[in-house]
Amino acid sequence: MQIWPAIDLRGGKCVRLQQGDYNRETVFGDDPAEMAQRWTDQGAECLHLVDLDGAKEGQVSNRTAIAEILKAVNIPCELGGGIRDEETIQTLLDLGMARLVIGSKAVSQPEWFEEMCLRYPGKLALGIDARDGLAATDGWLETSNMSAIALAQKYEHLPIAAVIYTDIATDGMMAGPNVAAMAEMKASIRFPVIASGGVTTVDDVAQLATAGLDGAIVGRTLYEGKMTVSAAVEAARAALL
């Protein structure tokens, strides 16, 4: 199971939100590239970036910080937030992003998403952010009437890299992940599933690994020093022995 340290970008800084609420923000650093290097030094083998401004505004807004991160580290990075057109996809892949996470547009314009997945096989991940089991969009500001699992199953015929599944209720709350929901998603589709939201302790990591998840995004607990990347990586490996 892969461990994906999260770097959430807002106004060019590293921040974390609680339950996706833009009014409940904590700033953890002014230099995202330095933060990326810190996680790499701790043993990170990949990074999960989120452009929070982009998610809200519908266009990538932290390009400078994103480019600096890609220059600073030599590991695969994925990015979500504000990716709503093909030009942006091409620009970010050319910049060196390993893959891109698309969420809102997969809900609102399924034909476009399908076309992009076929045009960029293995380069796009489906980002599903769920509130009470329903897919949320537009920086979590709107909730759709489609279940998270139904949304994932709708695209099972496409060459998608992974499903990034976030439980909004647990995200940033340091209270543990929704393991049952993550396991249910994993059991319902053929794609790799990356769990996000609430991962706080090595036991959380172990539970997700045991449940069959392919990866876990880890955020606030790293920034607050409650767990290291190396400890998370070791917990994931040990759980699968």
Rank of each mutant, 00 (worst) to 15 (best):
Thr143Met: 09
Ala183Leu: 11
Asp203Lys: 10
Ile102Trp: 02
Asn145Ser: 15
Pro110Lys: 15
Trp112Gln: 15
Ala106Asn: 12
Ile128Ala: 03
Leu124Asn: 04
Pro110Gln: 13
Ala152Tyr: 07
Lys186His: 09
Met146Leu: 10
Ser196Cys: 13
Ile164Trp: 01
Cys117Gly: 09
Gly103Tyr: 02
Thr166Arg: 03
Val163Tyr: 00
Ala135Asp: 02
Ala148Val: 08
Glu142Ser: 15
Gln153Pro: 11
Ile168Pro: 03
Ala106Gln: 08
Glu111Pro: 06
Ser196Asn: 10
Gly103Asn: 03
Ala180Phe: 10
Val179Cys: 11
Gly176Gln: 06
Ile168Ser: 02
Ala98Ile: 11
Val179Gln: 09
Leu158Phe: 11
Ala161Trp: 02
Ser196Gly: 13
Pro177Ser: 15
Ala148Asp: 14
Trp112Pro: 06
Glu111Cys: 09
Met174Lys: 12
Thr166Glu: 06
Met146Ala: 13
Asp203Ile: 02
His157Asp: 15
Gln153Val: 00
Val193Ala: 07
Lys105Asp: 14
Met182Tyr: 07
Pro110Gly: 11
Leu151Pro: 14
Ala152Glu: 11
Val193Gly: 04
Cys117Met: 08
Met116Val: 12
Lys186Cys: 08
Ser147Cys: 12
Ala150Thr: 03
Ala195Gly: 04
Pro159Arg: 02
Trp140Leu: 12
Gly139Met: 04
Gly103Ala: 08
Glu114Gly: 00
Ser147Arg: 11
Asp167Gln: 08
Ala130Gln: 03
Asn178Cys: 14
Glu142Gln: 15
Asp129Leu: 13
Gly103Trp: 00
Val202Leu: 12
Gly139Ile: 00
Gly96Gln: 12
Gly103Val: 06
Tyr155Cys: 05
Leu141Val: 07
Leu118Ile: 09
Lys105Phe: 13
Gly197Met: 02
Asp167Thr: 12
Cys117His: 01
Arg119Met: 11
Leu158Val: 10
Ile160Trp: 01
Thr200Met: 07
Gln153Leu: 06
Ala148Leu: 11
Ala162Val: 10
Ala195Lys: 00
Asp138Trp: 07
Glu115Gly: 02
Asp138Tyr: 13
Gly133Trp: 05
Met97Arg: 09
Gly122Phe: 04
Val199Asp: 11
Tyr165Asp: 01
Val199Lys: 03
Lys154Thr: 01
Thr170Gly: 08
Asp132Lys: 11
Gly172His: 02
Arg131Ala: 01
Asp203Arg: 06
Arg131Phe: 02
Glu156His: 10
Asp129Asn: 13
Arg99His: 08
Trp140Asn: 07
Trp112Phe: 14
Phe113Leu: 06
Ala183Cys: 08
Leu151Ile: 05
Ala175Asp: 12
Glu115Met: 04
Phe113Gly: 01
Val202Tyr: 05
Thr200Leu: 10
Lys154Leu: 14
Asp132Gln: 15
Pro192Ile: 14
Gly133Tyr: 00
Pro192Gln: 10
Pro159Ala: 15
Gly122Ala: 09
Trp112Ala: 15
Ser188Val: 10
Gly122Trp: 00
Gly133Pro: 12
Arg190Ala: 13
Ala135Phe: 09
Gly127Tyr: 02
Ala169Pro: 08
